[in-house]
Simulated assay, not measured.
Amino acid sequence: MKLKIAVQKSGRLHDESLRLLKDCGISIDNGKDQLKAPAKNFPLEIYYLRNGDIPQYLKDGVVDCAIVGENLLVEKGDGITHMQPLGFSKCRVSIAVSKIFEYDSVQDLAGKRIATSYPVTLQKYLSEHGIEADLHIINGSVEIAPNIGLADAICDIVSSGSTLFKNNLKEVEVILQSEAVLAASPRIPEAAKAYLENLQFRIESVLKGRSSRYVLLNAPDEQLEQIIEILPGMKSPTVLPLAEKGWSSIHSVVPQDEFWEKIEALKAAGAEGILVCPIEKMVV
């Protein structure tokens, strides 16, 4: 029995998905153009699938789990369990209009033609605002629709916004914030659930490591209490006496998104010789 996991065959999610599995200590035999490959050191088999097909494979139980965009699950993945946000491939599903469109609010979309690859997500949003519009379902190159007179607006996935800019469009409404997630099939066999839990444990350890930094510093003993308040650590900081009397070494973990604030506060409190190291994995 092996855990069957689907990842995107090519595109935004592919490389980051494989990197995550590698960081989880899973080695995959991946020959060129393979659609299925086994792991060497974990009971796992990876399926390389078209992105849009992954939700149906999960629903049918062809695969047990997948690394897939949350936006795709909202659109096509009713009944599929979101196990874990993964922190990469962040994007949003947004409505955009021509730069010359005089847009004040979502009510301006009433009766308009909107081209989209996300009809379910868009219709839900419009219905919540009591708006009726004419939806044109397009797969690919949605941004060109207003320029050729096919639609008044579009609803599509947006990352940097550069594609909208190139097509003389402006983003006016954000419907959904999305990122890659680990998702589980509603039909996953009982025998595979233990492997999935093991995989999720490894993923959580990798993600915690990526989002944290290990900090080592020297501090005068009279400032220890103030510095420890800045660096709470996972439970509490490690404090070790230095050879020089009156000084101690403090070791702790800092969330990456608080890093610069903490460093500035530590320097102001008298910390010296601050070293910052990446954390490969963190098990708590």
Rank of each mutant, 00 (worst) to 15 (best):
R202S: 11
E204W: 08
I137H: 04
M1K: 06
R92H: 09
S162M: 02
Q200E: 14
S141G: 13
I67K: 02
V239F: 00
F259A: 07
K193Y: 10
P186A: 12
A153T: 02
A219F: 02
R12E: 12
Y48T: 13
Y214H: 10
A192Q: 04
V283T: 14
L275G: 12
C91V: 13
A151D: 05
A271V: 06
G161Y: 06
D152R: 00
Y48A: 09
L44T: 08
D53F: 10
V239I: 08
D221N: 15
R213N: 07
E45Y: 12
E272V: 15
Q8G: 08
K281V: 10
L35E: 15
L122C: 11
E132K: 07
P55D: 07
E45G: 11
N167E: 01
A66D: 06
G31I: 14
A96F: 01
E280S: 14
Q107E: 13
Q226P: 05
V97L: 08
M282R: 07
A219H: 05
L217R: 05
A66R: 03
A219V: 10
I203F: 03
N30F: 14
I148D: 00
E75P: 04
E222I: 10
Q177T: 15
L216M: 15
N51G: 15
V174A: 03
T81D: 13
K245H: 14
E197Q: 11
E261R: 13
V276C: 05
I54W: 07
S10V: 15
P237H: 04
N168S: 11
G233Q: 00
E204Y: 04
L242D: 11
Y48S: 12
V63Y: 02
V74T: 14
A180Y: 09
A191F: 10
I228S: 13
L58K: 07
I203L: 00
I131T: 03
I26L: 13
A37V: 08
E190T: 14
K99E: 05
V93A: 08
L266A: 00
S248P: 05
A145S: 08
R92I: 05
N51W: 15
L58R: 07
F101R: 03
D64S: 00
A194G: 06
Y118C: 05
K208D: 08
S249V: 12
Q8Y: 02
S212Y: 05
T116G: 04
H136K: 06
K262C: 07
A219Y: 00
V253W: 01
I114K: 00
V106P: 06
K90P: 01
E128N: 05
Q84N: 11
E45I: 15
I5P: 03
A133E: 01
P55K: 02
L275N: 12
S252I: 05
A243S: 11
D23Q: 14
V93E: 00
P38N: 04
N147D: 12
K193N: 12
H14Q: 11
G140K: 09
D64A: 04
K193D: 02
G87R: 10
T163N: 04
E244Q: 14
K36C: 11
G161P: 02
S98W: 01
P186L: 04
I144N: 01
L20H: 03
